[in-house]
Design a protein around this nucleic acid. Structure first.
Lengths: 228, 228
DNA sequence: GCAAAAGTGTTAAGGCTACACCCATGC
DNA sequence: GCATGGGTGTAGCCTTAACACTTTTGC
């Protein structure tokens, strides 16, 4: 018996802004199957290529983007998921800052677009399911892992972090309690500057993520709960 | 360019007893590479076979066992992990009750043994790493998912559940607070009978997991935290 | 009776929730 | 001034953590 299974590595690339919410990067397929439908960036893994390297390569080729954070999520292996035959998909979660998410047209560039996660177009294969799984995955990880900071700018107001959590957990959070909790952990470092030109209201203090402090807390053994 | 990647599905099969702690099922390799070292049960995926079906099949063939719970965990894809060439390993977590974990010799049976998770023998490939990842995975899941009950007998004393959690989180838990918390959730249903012939002390009340209640709580939207 | 494990209760501390109030900016 | 969003404080509640006593068994 000879095994014939092909493998792709694909990524659910997410960006967030309080203005537009969570958005996912999709590329329009130019070949069958599912031609003209929208799919996740990714492609067939080279024989000697690590899975994450494949994702980075395909993402670069197709959209010119560089993920700020990348982790493996789950493998989709249903025998019927691809009409061409057995194709395994190793799905990844990729995060990118909104400010670094502009799609660049280039050599291997396909038509790519950011779509609101809750308003997807017609998608190829099981990719809509994979996007949903990525959000579930994020929901689990954001309780204890500092992944939110991979999507925010280096300097951000607390309200931006809060709104990101509100989007992911789909519930409103008390602004004042959120700020107290997050400051109590000491994970945010105040920057000297304040937010310039707010659309309305008092300019917000800008913070950056204190990764050293986070690692210190984690090493100390106490479980770090960023958000409950 | 022609892709040539082979795919295996393997399982970290775990059983637990308060007497012996957490143990993992390993099979002795009978062919190179890593001949005579101990590896995870599993093998090459058939072309038209779902990943989980492959795990069940290999487990049955190699040890005669049937996993009580099976979920995909992570995919190990380092190009150098197998000297034979590119072999992807889709690792699964499998749980089995101690009372149903006796290895049965049969046709395709390899030499298999239960080993304490914290005292592994010399292992093949990256399988020791995968076992460690499975314990980490379990540590995350046990907070909110009722996987502990997949390893305990149908009827069990609360102390058995408590000790399982103590093993996984590697810390001692106050017996009385644990019982109150778990009873407060209403997830356990008292059975009419008590534990017969305890080695010492007062016979314990036996309980079984109330899955309906758990699903009800989960549906109600409130996040269910079984253990913190 | 004694040791060992199981069942039940109490109390204090800390975290979270729900609030009210003031501040800084644009218009 | 007024609207709007940002920063800080406080009181009550509820959960958790720490701990004492009683009960039921085997020997």
């Amino acid at each position: 018996m000879h095994q014939h299974i092909r493998v792709t590595a694909e990524a659910v690339v997410l960006r967030y802004s309080s203005k537009e919410g969570m958005m996912v990067l999709l590329t329009k397929r130019t070949i069958p199957p599912h031609i003209f439908k929208w799919g996740l960036p990714g492609g067939f893994v080279h024989n000697d290529e690590p899975l994450e390297a494949c994702v980075h390569r395909e993402l670069k080729d197709e959209t010119g983007l560089r993920a700020n954070y990348l982790e493996q999520m789950s493998t989709w292996g249903n025998p019927d998921r691809d009409p061409r035959g057995r194709v395994l998909c190793v799905a990844h979660l990729a995060l990118i800052r909104h400010s670094a998410s502009k799609i660049v047209l280039g050599a291997g560039t396909k038509e790519s677009k950011w779509y609101p996660v809750r308003e997807l177009p017609v998608t190829a294969f099981d990719h809509a399911e994979i996007v949903a799984a990525a959000i579930d995955h994020l929901r689990v990880r954001l309780h204890t892992e500092p992944l939110a900071f991979e999507m925010l700018d280096e300097k951000f107001p607390v309200s931006e972090l809060e709104k990101l959590y509100e989007w992911v957990y789909d519930r409103s959070v008390d602004r004042r309690n959120f700020q107290k909790k997050i400051n109590g952990l000491g994970l945010l470092a105040a920057r000297p500057e304040k937010l310039k030109h707010p659309l309305q209201g008092r300019p917000a203090q800008l913070y950056s993520f204190n990764r050293e402090k986070f690692l210190e807390l984690k090493e100390s053994g106490a479980p770090v709960e960023i958000f409950s």
